[in-house]
Every structure is written in structure tokens, then in C-alpha cells.
């Protein structure tokens, strides 16, 4: 097992390298270091000297990938790419272009992100499973048909409508919760209700439908028929057997996304002014803060790889037949 994890860790290295190079190239194809400097220096009275000065201080006066002038190995090391990327691998994100420490910012901003994403996931899971169970329980009735139609309808609405509508009705007309904002500690709850609710509602359509198919697959299986023949009631069958067995794909599906919860939701966070990592990334892209963009992409890919690994491991827990090799 440990060996497997180690091997996967090694396999991740070239992946992260690829991600890094790609981000780097993408970013610098469109933004030259000069552009970055001008972006940071503002609009008024920017002189060429100030730009050079800025580039020098932030280490952007080197060549991008290959230093023709330097000697031997320095051809590679004396470049922006080498100098800026290597420290990422030990999770030292350094300073953003505007001078703040990225690591500290990430640590601070991941909690708001989590505090939306986690409740949304858990509540969403519960709601979706209940709706799906209900659909299976009442299958072949008008209730199931109605629910399916409702699910398709919910799926066909853009998430932006949910947010705009939610803010308008619950925040503006009913005045039940603050329209937007965030606070630390327990007082965060009142700010989280609306985004979480919207997150859950907008996810019901696809979620419930997906779980329904999972349940239906189980319901058709032989052991369920046997259980029913034994005289178990429909409810008992559903909860004791179907739900239990369907939990395996559901849980493994959840495990993949767990690490990515840290990254937050781009849209939700900027609509509700929640200071999470999602809005952090968007801001960085808009402000062309390469240091932040690179760090967030790197973090994202690490978490993604972690998610894949966790899924593999979770298979061995739920299904003893699977062995990692």
C-alpha cells in the first residue's frame, strides 16, 4: 500500500512539471514581464526606468526559459521559469507581485472557501439521496414522473439564474439573510445560508438523477429480489440493501472532489463577496498576478492528483477484492 502511494507520488512529479510549464507558457505568451510591471505600477507617470526597476526587483529581468548568456547549468537556472517554479515543489509560494505572502493568504482564504463548499456538499448529498430514494420508492407513479421532469427542468436553468433569483427573493424581498458578505467564526452562518441553499438547489437536478440511476441498477439486481421474496417491506429493502450497496459508487464519487473543495467556487464567491480561494484566483487572473495564478494552478493540480489517489485507496476499503498494484 505505502509502496503504491509512493509510486503514485513519483508519478505525480512529471505531471506537476507539465502543469507548471503549461501555465508558464500560457501566461507569458499573453503577458510579457513588461506588461506585468506596468499593470502593477499603475497608470500615472510610469517611466521606462520604473518598469526596469520593478522587473529587476521581482526577478523578471531574466530570460523566460533559456538563458543564452549564462554558463553551463546556469543556462537553465538563470531563467524566470526555473527561479519561480522550483520553490513551488516544497510549497513555498513566495510573494505575490503586489508584495503579499501567498502562503499566508491561501491559509487565510481557504476557510471561507471550505465553509461554503463543505456544507454545500454534505447537505447537497443528503438532499440528492433523499430525493433519489423517494423517486425509487415511488417508481412508476406520477410522483416519479413529476420528479424526473422537475429534475430536468432544474438542470436546464443556468446557475446564474439561481444566484440572481436567490439574492433577489430571499435577500432583497424577504430580508431573511444578508445579501452578501462574510464574517469569521459563528457569525459566518447567516452569510452562508443563502450560498449553500443556492448551491444545493442548483445541484439537485443532475445529482438526484444520477443517484436514481444508481439505485435503480441495484433494485434490479437478484439479491434485492431475494430480499423482497423473504418478505422484507419495500422500505426495508431500500434502506438495508439498495442504499448500502449504492453507497460505494456515491462515496468514491465524493472522495474525488474532496480535496478540490479547498479551491472554492469561482462564481459563488464573487457574487457573495466571500473572501475564498475561488475569488482569489479570478482576481489574480484579472490583475495578471502571475505569482498567484501559478501557485493556485499548482495547488489545484496537487489536490486533483490527491483526489485521484484517494479514490483508488477508497476502493480498497469499500471493496476488498480490489488490490492496488
Amino acid at each position: 500500500m505505502i509502496q503504491y502511494i509512493l509510486r503514485r507520488g513519483l508519478y505525480a512529479l512529471p505531471l506537476l512539471m507539465g502543469v507548471n510549464i503549461l501555465t508558464f507558457v500560457l501566461f507569458f505568451v499573453v503577458n510579457s514581464p513588461d506588461d506585468m510591471a506596468r499593470m502593477q505600477l499603475g497608470h500615472k507617470h510610469v517611466t521606462e526606468q520604473a518598469v526596469q526597476n520593478w522587473k529587476h526587483q521581482h526577478g523578471y529581468d531574466l530570460p523566460l526559459l533559456w538563458n543564452q548568456q549564462a554558463e553551463n547549468s546556469q543556462k537553465v537556472t538563470q531563467t524566470i521559469f526555473y527561479q519561480k517554479s522550483l520553490s513551488l515543489f516544497i510549497f513555498d509560494f513566495g510573494l505575490s507581485e503586489s508584495g503579499r505572502n501567498i502562503g499566508t493568504d491561501i491559509k487565510q482564504r481557504m476557510w471561507p472557501s471550505l465553509s461554503i463548499a463543505l456544507p454545500s456538499l454534505i447537505v447537497g448529498l443528503m438532499v440528492n439521496i433523499s430525493v433519489a430514494l423517494m423517486m425509487v420508492l415511488f417508481r412508476n407513479s406520477y410522483l416519479e414522473f413529476g420528479s424526473i421532469v422537475l429534475c430536468v427542468i432544474l438542470m436546464s436553468i443556468s446557475s446564474l439564474f439561481y444566484i440572481i433569483g436567490g439574492q433577489f427573493f430571499i435577500g432583497k424581498l424577504l430580508k431573511l439573510v444578508p445579501i452578501s458578505g462574510y464574517d469569521t467564526g459563528l457569525s459566518a452562518i447567516k452569510f452562508l445560508i443563502l450560498p449553500v441553499l443556492i448551491g444545493v438547489v442548483s445541484g439537485i437536478g443532475s445529482g438526484a438523477r444520477w443517484y436514481r440511476t444508481l439505485f435503480l441498477e441495484e433494485v434490479e439486481k437478484d439479491y434485492v429480489r431475494t430480499a423482497r421474496a423473504k418478505g422484507l417491506t419495500e422500505t426495508q429493502v431500500l434502506f438495508k440493501h439498495v442504499l448500502k450497496n449504492a453507497m460505494i459508487p456515491i462515496l468514491t464519487g465524493v472522495v474525488v472532489v474532496l480535496p478540490l473543495l479547498f479551491m472554492g467556487s469561482l462564481i459563488m464567491e464573487s457574487f457573495f463577496s466571500i473572501p475564498g480561494l475561488g475569488s482569489y484566483t479570478i482576481e489574480a487572473i484579472n490583475r495578471q498576478d502571475f505569482a498567484i495564478v501559478r501557485s493556485m494552478v499548482f495547488l489545484g493540480s496537487v489536490l486533483y492528483i490527491l483526489g485521484l489517489l484517494m479514490t483508488d485507496i477508497s476502493y480498497t476499503f469499500v471493496d476488498p477484492r480490489v488490490r492496488l498494484s
Binding site: 502543469v19 503549461l22 500560457l26 499573453v30 484566483t281 485521484l308
Partner: peptide, 18 residues
Amino acid sequence: TTLNSIPGVLLIAASILM
């Protein structure tokens, strides 16, 4: 896997700029 692990937003933003 590499493509997947880069947030799509970044790829899109970059190419639009390009």
C-alpha cells in the same frame, strides 16, 4: 491528467487573451 488538473478558467482566459 495534466490538462484536467489545470483549472479550465485559466486555460480559457489565456486563450481568449491570445
